[in-house]
Computed example of a mutant assay.
Amino acid sequence: MDLIVDPAAGELIAGPRRYRCALGKGGIVADKREGDGGTPVGRFPLRQVFYRPDRLPAPPATALPVQAIAPADGWCDAPDDPAYNRPVTLPYPASAEAMWREDAVYDVVVVLGHNDDPPVPGLGSCIFLHVARPGYAPTEGCVALALPDLLAVLAECRPGDCLSVPC
Rank of each mutant, 00 (worst) to 15 (best):
A72S: 10
D6P: 06
P59S: 06
A94C: 10
L90H: 02
P138K: 14
V108D: 01
E102W: 14
D117V: 14
V111W: 01
G160I: 07
L112D: 01
G27L: 08
D73P: 12
L150N: 12
I4T: 13
P118R: 07
K25I: 12
D107M: 10
L145N: 02
W100I: 01
D31H: 14
G15P: 02
P121C: 08
V110S: 01
R52S: 03
C76R: 06
P138D: 09
T39F: 06
R86C: 15
D54E: 01
R55C: 10
P93I: 04
A83D: 12
T39N: 01
V41L: 09
D103G: 05
T89R: 10
I4V: 10
G124A: 04
V111D: 05
P71R: 05
C162D: 11
P60W: 07
D54H: 01
V29Y: 09
L64S: 01
G26R: 15
F44Y: 06
G113I: 08
C162I: 13
G135Y: 14
I69G: 04
P166D: 04
R158H: 08
T89W: 11
A30S: 08
D6R: 09
C21Q: 01
I127T: 03
P60V: 04
P159T: 03
A146V: 15
W100P: 04
V49R: 03
D2I: 05
V41A: 07
A83M: 07
D80F: 14
L3C: 09
L145I: 05
